[in-house]
Design a protein around this nucleic acid. Structure first.
Lengths: 190, 190
DNA sequence: AAGCGCTGAGAACGATCGTTCTCTGCTGGC
DNA sequence: GCCAGCAGAGAACGATCGTTCTCAGCGCTT
């Protein structure tokens, strides 16, 4: 079976994503990715010269996918206020996925943050991107201090992400939405 | 050099705590713990028959230490309202520690949650203990719905914990305290 | 038809993992 | 003085890791 570069790359990334996310980076060997992807070890190393490269690609794709899923939910809402709260509806849907295991960036950072500066950097960038999005939504919603509101809302989001992972319930998203509503109302321009 | 059981156990746990917390569980071999603790491999395995046992002991001790540090901060405050907010002052101090690397339970859960039910259980218990403490503080502070307030405050706390780890700043504790104040004021019995 | 280059399958390599075993030397009881 | 038993130091074991190498086979050019 011969594969063109694009599909081979996609199959490897699909396998890496599923395995890294479920079991963690260090617990998954390159052999497991090779078996799951059906791409030979040789080709795998041609596409991604090292495991670290593959981890970076895994995180990059997660970041892009996550951003687009978030944007999808936000754009479905019309008025600025519900666009901001749509963030928490997105979280709720995410948490309900059967294989939900928390945030790949938080998990990877916990595993490799000390030893791999690249992973630490990607985690920071991912979270900063999210914070930026919240800042824009907060500004559009007419917050008195959009930056501060974004800081508060991201804490609720991150808290819900880890709590949902550990408890195995999607409920934290509901609680986060409640708290977000309170904070949002309190920080709207009067 | 001969060590009695108690000091040998303490030295092993000190070394395991420092290494597991800094580098993650999987990245630390038993040999590294042996070198750092100065306890022979044989004795190490007499005290902790497997690495998983040692990981459990590491998490148990972290839980106890964390709880007592939190209690210390809370008890230093007098009125119920500042006792509740003292949680976030505690977080601020914690985040400022030079070797702060996030929550050991969140990190361990991310690394081993899927594969080790015991680690998943300990993480859940640790977080439930924290939530319970928040619930009591919320009730004492006269919240209309203490359980809901505790749910909101724990989201802010967990969010601050992970954000502080990734960003390397203690600032999230300040932001969390701000948001907590707003939520607290909004949910006091009127 | 013949040879070159790339392929996939998987063996092989050196390192390191968690765990156990060996060996040497010391200590206490008789 | 002597022997049983436990200590520590670290070698050894089998497994697995990330990575590289071997090798037989296929498709392409001339």
């Amino acid at each position: 079976m011969v594969l063109d570069t694009a599909t081979a790359q996609r199959q490897v990334l699909d396998a890496a994503d599923a395995l890294f996310y479920e079991r963690g980076v260090q617990a998954v060997g390159m052999d497991a990715i090779r078996s799951a992807s059906g791409v030979s070890l040789k080709r795998l190393y041609q596409l991604f010269p090292s495991k670290e490269t593959l981890v970076e690609a895994y995180l990059d794709r997660r970041d892009a996918l996550w951003k687009s899923m978030l944007a999808e939910h936000v754009e479905a809402a019309t008025d600025p206020r519900s666009r901001l709260l749509a963030v928490f509806d997105f979280l709720y849907e995410w948490f309900q996925q059967r294989d939900y295991r928390g945030c790949a960036f938080i998990n990877s950072f916990g595993e490799l943050g000390t030893v791999s500066p690249r992973v630490a950097e990607l985690a920071l960038e991912h979270k900063e991107g999210f914070r930026r999005a919240l800042g824009e939504l907060a500004a559009a919603a007419g917050a008195r201090d959009p930056e501060q509101l974004a800081d508060h809302l991201i804490l609720l989001s991150e808290g819900a992400i880890t709590r949902s992972a550990i408890s195995g319930t999607a409920d934290p998203a509901v609680r986060a939405r409640e708290a977000a509503t309170m904070i949002l109302d309190a920080s709207l321009a009067s």
